[in-house]
Write a protein that binds this DNA or RNA. Structure first.
Length: 765
DNA sequence: CAGTGAGCGAGCTTCCGCTTGACTT
């Protein structure tokens, strides 16, 4: 018989706590929720006061069996699931599945895994809070109703296997609406004037002041006129202002801010960050990685302070406790921090080390003093124009937390240069070295990255730390959005340079609209979004979650009844479902583009069975319509007649080569040349299927054949040594084998290969 | 792996949040 059994949610947590509690306690884990609504059908008895129908999912049966066994062997049971809505529900499910008496079951909670917190919790057990449980049930039931009633409508009205939900549909909406802003955006250009001024007539490294004119000029003409004035003007410093300022460190990491910074500083995807963080957590190197709290335990604060004083001195230490500001935060855990703040670097793989270091720096910096800066602004006046130039410079007087860490921003231009300004006084004359007027274009709002989408969702209070990564994966899996790169377009900018009294014009090319790892909406995502906005505007409203959360809070406080709340919601919601089903129309996304310039046939685009497709002609005429798939970066919404007609130019013949025809087309994996029954990919960014010549195609074919020949290092019939992406390897029966380090692939004999294969197979078994 | 687009019908798809592995490359 075990004296005390403690049940927590996470196995790593169980391990740590067991150490603190000693011999009389056994600590086990539930691995999160152990029961859920029935997976098939709605799983809710609507008629019977929305009674939930629970089941133990198949993958949880083993855990539950073990928990039952452990419970049967234990005298006292303590349920220590997290102190939030979901944790309370887990506690209740545990009690119910393990047949525990709610009156006598000890429910304990702690927000940090420290000995103090845990022993304190054991001294203060309470009962399961049924109001909080009802609040979770309301949340769960509402999400199930929304997801399981709207999704089937999409199967009927748009396409099978689609999905909708309180969280994912808003995520898609954000991306679609941002794309439409970008489509509607008209870029305009103007001329900005920058001057490099000198304190003496001769240039030296230390007397330069870089300043910008306060006025922008709408066109080249106006800019040129202003430069003429500049050429004739005398300059002097009209004012110098020096303002002291401070900068404060960012709070310690939550899941959302960790995902953002790991993306900005390390280039990690949201899911990659979570995988690496999970590893660190399991190894006991960081605290729990799914949290919305910026709180640090007293122990962590004290330890951090010690580290900072030892490393940088007393002056750099400032103990701070940050308030969590995100909407709907439940703060069941600490912020994400190093388990041992005195450990600055760890062992592990490269990514683990980098993420750990990021977490360490952010945590330590959060407990450090403000940085003190001095910001200098110089105003420069002309004697023949009211336009002022201004220069700003910043000097860090005391680095404080900046010694360790500074937060990145989402802006694409990166850190602004903080120039050092030579000492000047008001009234001092200045001389220009060069003054340039540069054409600048306005830029559309940025597309979301995975990380900036998480940030936005958190601001709206939509989704939870445990669901940010899965949500992003869901909307990509459904085909609503895709993470893509775009090469951008070249454009020319004009620059007028004034030097030594003479103005000259030059032209520079810049790349605009280049995108890396951005979320692009796909046609099906736009169609589903439009359908949802039309048919279920309340559900995909950005405030919907916040509104229902208010009601969940009231249920948690015992001021509102679950049945009353759900009834009110369901009555109006279910009507919108019925209305949507009554309408006969199916969403096809069809758009008529115009008539074929030669034949006069109608040309249109729509969502076809296999994706977006362009069509010439219609089924009403005797001639069969012709079809062509849209390219990956084209949208039903924006494709033009010309672009659509272009699609029909492929596949096209490039003529004959050594008795066989070469055909160029665009397939599943991009543009290709087909020759002699084989496919040869066109080079990305280099070849264009519409313009590629026969000569270039022959080149591609030769190149590929050459590299294929090189691919085979040795051929022993059933065993081959090949050259792969990661170097030479052995292949047999479609299985690949690594060549041990030190062996020379060129010199291996068949017998040696056999030996390697046997050894590898044995090691695996 | 590089194509598909007529129409019918059976059977299936789907949510959000809490936890980890078990997979393959």
């Amino acid at each position: 018989m075990i004296e005390n059994l403690v049940i927590v949610e996470s196995p790593a947590k169980a391990k740590t706590i067991e150490k603190y509690l000693g011999k009389d306690f056994r600590v086990v884990s539930s691995f999160g929720h152990i029961r859920d609504l029935k997976k098939k059908n709605l799983g809710i008895d609507i008629e019977n006061d929305f009674a939930p129908e629970y089941e133990i999912p198949k993958e949880k049966t083993k855990v539950v069996a073990e928990l039952r066994k452990a419970a049967a062997q234990s005298k006292n049971i303590w349920i220590a699931s997290d102190e939030d809505r979901e944790g309370e529900a887990i506690a209740w499910h545990l009690a119910s599945v393990l047949d525990l008496d709610l009156e006598t079951t000890r429910r304990i909670v702690f927000h940090e895994i420290t000995k103090d917190a845990i022993t304190n919790a054991i001294l203060n057990p309470r009962k399961v809070d049924m109001n909080l449980v009802h609040s979770q049930q309301a949340r769960r039931i509402l999400d199930r109703i929304v997801g399981y009633e709207i999704s089937p409508v999409l199967w009927k009205k748009v396409q099978p296997s689609l999905s909708a939900g309180r969280v994912q549909s808003v995520a898609v909406r954000l991306i679609v609406e941002r794309e439409r802003e970008i489509i509607a955006f008209k870029s305009e250009s103007s001329f900005r004037v920058n001057g490099i001024f000198m304190t003496e007539k001769d240039k030296s490294d230390s007397n330069l002041i870089r300043a910008e004119a306060a006025k922008k000029f709408p066109d080249e003409n106006e800019a040129a006129k202003f430069l003429e004035l500049c050429a004739a003007s005398e300059y002097k410093v009209s004012s110098v202002t020096v303002k002291p300022g401070t900068r404060s460190p960012a709070p310690p990491f939550t899941t959302s801010t960790l995902q953002q910074e790991a993306y900005r500083k390390l280039g990690f995807s949201v899911s990659q960050t979570m995988t690496v963080a999970q590893k660190l957590y399991e190894a006991g190197k960081i605290t729990y990685m799914r949290t919305d709290s910026t709180n640090l335990s007293k122990l962590a604060l004290a330890k951090s302070r010690e580290v900072i004083i030892a490393e940088f001195g007393e002056k750099y230490s400032k103990t701070r406790q940050f308030r969590t500001k995100s909407k709907g935060a439940q703060e069941a855990h600490e912020a994400i921090r190093p388990a041992y703040p005195d450990v600055a670097t760890i062992s592990g793989n490269q990514n683990e080390k980098r993420l750990y270091e990021l977490i360490w720096k952010r945590t330590i910096a959060s407990q450090m003093a403000d940085a003190e800066v001095e910001r200098t602004t110089i105003s420069i006046e002309m004697n023949n124009s009211p336009v002022l130039f201004s220069a700003t410079g910043e000097v860090v007087k005391f680095d404080g937390f900046l010694k360790v860490y500074s937060e990145s921003t989402d802006s694409e231009h990166g850190e602004e240069e903080k120039a050092i300004i030579p000492p000047v006084k008001a009234g001092m004359p200045l001389f220009y070295e060069t003054i340039t007027a540069t054409q600048r274009y306005t830029t559309p709002p940025p597309r979301y990255t995975e990380a900036s989408l998480v940030k936005k969702l958190e601001e709206l209070g939509i989704g939870r730390p445990s669901t940010y990564a899965p949500t992003i994966s869901t909307i990509q899996k459904r085909g609503y959005v895709m993470r893509q790169d775009r090469p951008g377009m070249k454009r020319q900018i004009r620059i007028i340079t004034l030097s030594k009294g003479k103005a000259s014009v030059s032209v520079k090319t810049e790349i605009a609209g280049k995108e890396k790892s951005k979320l692009f909406p796909q046609d099906i995502g736009m169609m589903v979004n439009d359908y949802l906005v039309e048919s279920f505007p309340e559900i995909v409203d950005y405030n919907f979650t916040a509104e229902v959360e208010e009601q969940f809070d009231k249920i948690a406080e015992g001021k509102l009844k679950l049945t009353g709340m759900l009834e009110k919601f369901y009555n109006s919601f279910h009507k919108t479902i019925e209305n949507a089903l009554e309408k006969k129309v199916k969403k096809s996304g069809v758009r008529f583009l115009g008539n074929h310039p030669e034949t006069g046939e109608p040309v249109s685009v729509k969502m076809g069975r296999f994706g977006p497709v362009a069509q010439i002609g219609d089924t009403e005429s005797d001639k069969k319509p012709r079809f062509a798939s849209l390219a990956r970066n084209q949208l039903l919404e924006t494709i033009t007649l010309e672009e659509a007609l272009n699609l029909f130019r492929l596949p096209r013949s490039l003529g004959m080569h050594e008795g066989e025809e070469m055909v160029v087309g665009v397939g599943k994996f991009g543009p290709y040349v087909r020759y002699n029954g084989k496919f040869y990919s066109l080079k990305k960014g280099l070849d264009d299927p519409y313009t590629i010549t026969a000569q270039r195609a022959v080149e591609l074919i030769r190149e590929k054949e050459e590299s294929d020949r090189k691919k085979i290092i040795k051929d022993f019939g059933d065993i081959q040594i090949l050259n792969g992406r990661y170097g030479p390897y052995i292949t047999k029966d479609k299985k690949n084998y690594r060549i041990p380090r030190g062996d020379d692939a060129e010199k291996l004999t068949k017998e040696e290969c056999m030996a390697i294969i046997e050894k590898t197979d044995k090691n695996k078994a």
